[in-house]
Design a protein around this nucleic acid. Structure first.
Lengths: 334, 334
DNA sequence: AAACTTTAGTCAAGCGCTTGTCTTAAATTA
DNA sequence: TAATTTAAGACAAGCGCTTGACTAAAGTTT
């Protein structure tokens, strides 16, 4: 089987503890023995058993990531950002995907606790109370990323209200007054809901009337954008602009508008959200709000590292700014 | 600190071994004690220490994934497929990203070995000899996914030559004879190179001349597709179709063609590769070869599971078929 | 009733490391 | 030169669990 400290110790003629210390760079041996130990270790192809080490040190150098869906570009990028920083600090990442299902989330929190991860990152759906309780009880350092609700937990995210506000305000400043919205699923306290909130606030602050039938719900996907836009086109209240809560839906909207024989942005302007690569593929290219997914992940991991090292269980929140990317799908009408 | 078997044992009045057996469902206790043990375990909020268990069972229920880049849709989907099946079999996934760097790959193979993962999935760049050696020496069950080179190791991938051949053949059957190619980076034995091979073979088998200057290299990204197409347009040998080795480049090509005042597919037909969501966003929608990324991941994990359970170190290879997705970017000219 | 099985446990070793304490010989100091 | 410090290492316990071997009492068989 695998070679152990004992094997090295015997071959060199010292005890395990000496070998352990030397291999860990604790200076407790003569140059000679050190050399010998390193040499024998290399000869034997020694590969330390991190499991055994973890058992005594109570550190696994592993952090758990509970995430909704890896196949989703957005989450994949967040994960990517997390992984980079984790790796920088010498941590491995174990990833569990939940599809946003509460029971899966619960299950994985438990599992990761059994694995004794040093910390936990939560980037799944809206965090249910049950999860929060379990997390807090487990005492695992945790930070929540990319989700709005995290009362007792430190978290990093974007300000969906503010960023949506910015998108809609941009439309308003371009002279639009009949602005529709294609929202994502508007579940309470999730990004979809906050984006609607931002839309309404922008209208309100600019003395524009909020018409509920101009808000039609999609599911963030392209096809749903097409459907939603078609519905909007039927209602037709002379809208001149639409704010889509995702780029996929934005592109869908553009396609629907064009199919209806109208022109973007000449007849209707469209603005999206995410700055997905898809926004560059559409014709015209989609003006959008760019989210800092990678940075979100990086910041979250940096934060988690601090929590692990210093244990300040403060429910600290940080917001990362987005950027308005102007392209060709919005036209000024003043 | 955390509650252990010992704590439960003491409170119930039995030994640790009894508690362990009961909690693991090994029937070695009376109904009464069993009930009591479960009750006390729940009361105390017992959460088994998988580290300690792993130390003795030599199983971590963890598999390692070495992958090139999570932010890349393609790999993210492969990873997603892997995760699903891993989870089905009760394994966790620890992910390391390498950016295709050989030293990073080596480093992570070592790291994952230290963590005593039960198996390893390799989905990084072209696998260097050094990695293969290390992997084989480590004796960790390994399967390679989404990469063409894996001589001594079991692997699952698509047949890039064949699928590219199919794309080009489709163009030829539509009457095209002047077909250009926008290739990905053509590093030896990587997908980019194989796709070129498929392109050439298709031309060859159909008695069409291969002109090296009609193959221009991109890097799989959208912007490189635009650049490449512009170059092609300059050369201008009356090409009527182009095969792009990725959808991003395909969409880039379409944009370039349109910008040059020509029409797709009226003047030039374009076919892509991947079936990325981007292919649906472009105008016209891009005809392409659809890769089964998720399935690739799933199959690889299924395969790994078998290897772990049965240890047949056979260098088994499996190829998953792709699909030609016909949309509107290719026109028949006969 | 003696011999054998079962049941319900106990006991102890061991997985591969780390780490605090102790020991001995050499090096330094007064 | 005797006393003290330091260097180089040995010793042993322990992390939390699993598991094979053993035991004592109860139940079953003939």
């Amino acid at each position: 089987m695998a070679v152990t400290l004992k094997d090295i110790a015997e071959k060199v003629g010292v005890t395990e503890s000496t070998v352990s210390r030397v291999l860990n760079g604790i200076p407790k041996a003569s140059e000679k023995t050190q050399k010998k130990i390193f040499k024998v270790a290399a000869e034997l192809g020694y590969n330390p058993n991190q499991i055994a080490r973890s058992l005594v040190t109570k550190e696994t150098k592993t952090i758990g990531l509970i995430i909704s869906d890896l196949a989703n570009t957005y989450f994949a990028r967040v994960a990517s950002g997390i992984e980079k920083i984790a790796s920088k600090y010498g941590y491995s990442l174990v990833i569990s995907t939940t599809g946003g299902q509460e029971n899966a989330e619960l299950k994985y929190i438990n599992l990761l606790q059994e694995k004794r991860v040093d910390g936990l990152l939560f980037a799944s759906g809206k965090m249910p109370v049950s999860c929060r309780k379990l997390l807090i009880k487990s005492e695992i350092p945790t930070v929540v990323v990319a989700r709005e609700v995290a009362e007792e937990l430190p978290s990093v995210h974007i300000d969906n209200v503010k960023e949506s506000y910015r998108a809609v305000e941009y439309l308003i400043k371009a002279g639009h007054t009949k602005i529709a919205m294609i929202s994502g699923s508007a579940v309470d306290k999730e990004s979809g809901a906050y984006r609607i909130q931002g839309y309404k606030k922008a209208l309100n602050d600019n003395n524009l009337e909020i018409k509920e039938d101009l808000i039609v719900e999609g599911n963030f996907k392209l096809a749903s954008g097409i459907r939603a836009m078609n519905k909007l086109l039927q209602i037709n209240k002379n809208i001149t602009a639409v704010f889509a809560a995702s780029d996929e839906m934005g592109v869908g909207a553009i396609k629907a508008i064009k199919k209806a024989g109208l022109k973007v942005p000449h007849d209707i302007s469209v603005i999206g959200f995410d700055n997905n690569i898809i926004s560059l593929a559409s014709e015209p290219e989609l003006t959008t709000i760019s989210q800092p997914e990678e940075k979100l992940g990086q910041q979250a991991m940096e934060m988690l590292y601090k929590v692990i090292k210093e244990q300040p269980l403060t429910a600290h929140k940080i917001y990362l700014p987005c950027q308005l990317i102007k392209r060709n799908s919005v036209q000024s009408i003043i």
